[in-house]
Design a protein around this nucleic acid. Sequence first.
DNA 1: TCTTGACCTCAAGTTCACTTGAGGTGGGAC
DNA 2: GTCCCACCTCAAGTGAACTTGAGGTCAAGA
Lengths: 152, 152
Amino acid sequence: MAVSDGLSIGDIAARTGLAVSAIRFYEEQGLISPWRNDAGRRRFQRADIRRMSFVMIAQQFGFSLPQIRTELDRLPKHRAPTKADWARISVAFRAGLDQRIARLQKLRDTLDGCIGCGCLSLEACALYNPADRAAKRGTGPRYLMGDRPDQS
Amino acid sequence: MAVSDGLSIGDIAARTGLAVSAIRFYEEQGLISPWRNDAGRRRFQRADIRRMSFVMIAQQFGFSLPQIRTELDRLPKHRAPTKADWARISVAFRAGLDQRIARLQKLRDTLDGCIGCGCLSLEACALYNPADRAAKRGTGPRYLMGDRPDQS
DNA sequence: TCTTGACCTCAAGTTCACTTGAGGTGGGAC
DNA sequence: GTCCCACCTCAAGTGAACTTGAGGTCAAGA
């Protein structure tokens, strides 16, 4: 097979460490758009490996798949993204990561302070009035790190 | 009602921002152990508010409820924990938080480097051999930040 | 020729962290 | 007395992110 034929789903699985079923699921969610060969099988670009890695990293930061999709939608879907393409989406995204890291650091310090404070005055303790209360509305699992779809 | 009667589930909900149903669920999961009054209603200590806050913060760091339970099991369940009690569990837990933060920072830098690298040599790029591959086994949602129950 | 392996689809199952709903109790306020 | 409200239990539903299973295609190798 020539390089232009692209990679099979098995190749992508081997290269990314993702399960084949997960890759199919990601296609369904619009995170990748492989084309099909004559036999109806998925064919991927090498650049899709990077897309998948991006997904995996963003997930660790607590982004949901729809959110990641929004980021990736700013990349070209059917042409290999250039360095400039990636750099463009990187700017906003990196800021988001920094924000999440800072938030966790603040949270850790809050916990630190409160564990140490003894809290004879319960009302005054930061823990009892946390900056962001857990979302009370909606069902399903809570989004981590304060990144909920409805930031009301 | 005297202070010694403790707080109702509604009080706890109001003070923590958690839903009443969530508090009942947390009891079921062994995260809190309220006692019951004559009418069979849950009664909480003031210290339970702190317990719940701890749960909420730990969750934001990506800990699962069983993991949080393990941490909390090191506190006395039916007596109000002292400052020393909290300080004791704080040591190990704080280290875990620092580790998670460091991990995210490294991940962010990896992404940064890889977005900037152009990657003419795909094989050499750190993204194609991420330090920790996503778990391939098991069902259900992936645990965030590499903290899975079975660290095989 | 036959089998194996990699791929395909579509429906249903799974885990986590909850919420929702149905049906019931008990105590104040009017 | 009756109404409401806060609470109770237990079963079932929900959303996210996948996995598993059943049943089928197709090409390459023994």
